[in-house]
Design a protein around this nucleic acid. Structure first.
Lengths: 211, 211
DNA sequence: ATGCATATTGACCTAAGTGGTCAAATAAAT
DNA sequence: ATTTATTTGACCACTTAGGTCAATATGCAT
């Protein structure tokens, strides 16, 4: 993770980490600076020693999270793979790894991406917008759609798959709440995911042989 | 709708309606009695004239909503129909009708069902629990599962369909936010729904002929 | 019209929580 | 020993919370 690299001080790290969690759970408005410092286990003053105020802390987190994603996520997806499910697997595996390693950061960005970004500085709002559409694009660009069954509406098919995966992701996150996975094997979850993927593939791809 | 029938006073109706919306949007803790009376367009005192306090207002809403569902929802689903997608269609159509007629009530109950009910009186908590499991049961009981493709894990298939429908429902609700549908045709939405259902059916049912 | 009960209002109360400040204490570095 | 960088938490002004209540408006029976 390249983000938050400029931080040296331990106290500041604690604040950043606590703030990521608090903002992720409550959103900007409902997040409380008092709770952040309590979570971080430091005095109230430290937040205002390292950051000018609540808003600047938030913007700092957004800025650095965006940078991390821009440098480490985008361009790591192999667009030459034209099989939809291979592509999907690649993306989900990558996301899973990030989640298990940096769940605070991951949840924070999820919050940011789902929120309206209109009240943020143009600079950030635009980059968030780009990320939203680009994230979609990575999944659907340069995919060989002829492998899908031709007796089904492809657009609706893709939408259904999307919803299925969203639901699966939510159920995973729900199941993992409160579980410590600092040294957690994600192999079992990966296996389960592959089984669901297999069902979708069998359901929506052409039977082998016809093309 | 049989619930809330014992209400005579117009003012009380306004409060109930406003409270349903406020609790649905914010949940119990974040809901504000000040906002409720503002929404209802009545003075602060009226809330405490008709209800003892915030908690009792909330419990009144839960109680009456549960009664409405218990009397009008359960037992209206035809369990003799063994085709999964026919059953599904029946349930969703019913839900859609309720949503279009009583969206405040519908959204409130959605909130109640998704929240933890442990802090409610046993009486209500139990009925909510029953509703949760029974609601699932109505969809899956006495269904002819042999019509599903036998090369797919049935349990995973059903789970995927469930997630798909949840995603579809959310997208509908999102699209409808802020739209007035007091005299809204829901035919167009119904048609779209049937198309999605058709895709799912083709994807997960056996090809006609083999059994 | 008069009197009485029912409805209705909004200023007001206390308590809790908000973002933010700062003098004072502590720890580190020189 | 003295300066410098950290760290604390009591404190401030402000907002909002749930809840109360004296004052008033309304409807109705006589």
């Amino acid at each position: 993770m390249v983000a938050f690299n400029d931080i040296q001080e331990e106290t500041q790290k604690k604040i950043v980490s606590a703030a990521l969690e608090e903002f992720a759970e409550k959103g900007y408005d409902q997040a409380s600076t008092n709770r952040i410092v309590k979570r971080a286990g430091v005095g109230k003053g430290m937040l205002y020693y390292y950051f000018k105020n609540k808003k600047e802390l938030y913007l700092y987190l957004v800025e650095n999270s965006l940078e991390a994603i821009e440098h480490e996520y985008i361009n790591k997806i192999d667009l030459s793979e034209t099989d939809f499910f291979e592509r999907l697997q690649e993306i989900v595996e990558f996301k899973m790894k990030v989640y298990f390693k940096h769940s605070g950061f991951f949840n924070f960005m999820s919050q940011v991406l789902v929120m309206e970004s209109s009240h943020l500085p143009d600079n950030l709002a635009n980059r968030i917008d780009t990320l939203r559409t680009e994230g979609m694009g990575k999944l659907y660009q340069n995919v060989d759609y002829s492998r899908f069954r031709d007796d089904l509406d492809v657009e609706k098919t893709l939408q259904l798959i999307q919803w299925s995966l969203d639901g699966y992701a939510n159920s995973i996150i729900e199941r993992l709440k409160g579980i410590d996975f600092s040294q957690f094997e994600y192999e079992s979850y990966h296996e389960e995911f592959m089984e669901y993927l297999e069902v979708l593939k069998k359901a929506f791809y052409q039977k082998k042989g016809d093309e």
